[in-house]
């Protein structure tokens, strides 16, 4: 159903929180996502011309790298991006068939591949580039928030998180209920000033990004002084080695 579920206060909003301060841009989440999903709910995630000149594939998660600021003080920021499972996304409402929908129970935005006509309009409506067209099957696909993992009773409890989250070596990805202000992810967002991308689009993304922490380059940033003082006890003017002459230390 492409009409959005009526907003309910306190409703579950599952999503990701991505820590730009620790993401080292390793692409692990992107590849693991591909690996899980190519055999999962949206199987397959095809690759076109995989061994040729114009290789391109369907990926639900991609890692961009930006430089913010100029000169030596610029910050290189690795920037993973998958579907943000927006609360009021036009990618759902523009869909003429009802194939694109947002689940009322957890807010996950999905595509029903059995009814999608492959008109691509939803991909035009998504500002974040989260929709992936499978030209082989002629249908739209996208990040499912690993719906086939997070509730999967065949997996251990601890494994019921999205593939990208469980694989991230830098623990830069967190999964949880952003609708619950007391959830770990909500607290993390609160603590670290997590923000939404392109708020001006008014899609109300659920996913949040934690900004890079400020650099620590100012004198005193660790509590140390700006430079070491030469000890006065040893007496200036004397041979510097004399300082250690009478130091008696046993092994």
């Amino acid at each position: 159903m492409t009409s959005l579920p009526a907003p309910v206060a306190g409703a579950k909003k599952l999503g990701l929180v991505i820590d730009l301060d620790t993401c080292v841009g390793c692409h692990a989440c992107a590849v693991n996502c591909k690996e899980w999903n190519t055999g999962g709910h949206s199987a397959p995630l095809p690759d076109f011309d995989p061994y040729g000149a114009n290789v391109s594939g369907v990926w639900f998660n991609r890692i961009h790298t930006f430089e913010a600021g100029e000169g030596p003080d610029s910050r290189t920021v690795h920037f993973p991006k998958s579907c943000l499972h927006c609360e009021t996304p036009a990618c759902v409402t523009v869909c003429p068939t009802g194939a694109s929908y947002k689940r009322a129970e957890d807010g996950i935005v999905l595509v029903n591949a059995d009814t999608c006509i492959g008109c691509k309009l939803c991909s035009w409506a998504c500002p974040y580039g989260a929709r992936e067209f499978d030209a082989d099957e002629g249908v739209m696909k996208k990040c499912t928030l690993c719906i086939d993992r997070i509730y999967n009773e065949n997996l251990d409890e601890a494994d019921r998180v999205p593939a990208c989250v469980s694989t991230c070596p830098a623990s830069a990805r967190h999964f949880g209920d952003l609708g619950d202000p007391n959830s770990d992810v909500s607290k993390l967002v609160e603590e670290r000033g997590g923000y939404a991308l392109m708020p001006e689009m008014e899609y109300a993304p659920v996913n949040r990004y934690l900004p890079p922490r400020p650099a620590k380059t100012a004198p005193g940033c660790t509590g140390a002084s700006a430079a070491l003082e030469r000890p006065t006890a040893a007496g200036d003017g004397t041979h510097p080695l004399l300082r250690w002459m009478d130091r008696l230390l046993s092994r």
Binding site: N37, T38, G39, A43, P44, D47, D49, P50, D148
Partner: peptide, 14 residues
């Protein structure tokens, strides 16, 4: 020969 399109995982389509 290298395939022109890879559909790894299609066999497990739910």
């Amino acid at each position: 020969p290298s395939p022109e399109i890879l559909r790894y995982g299609a066999q497990w389509k739910s």
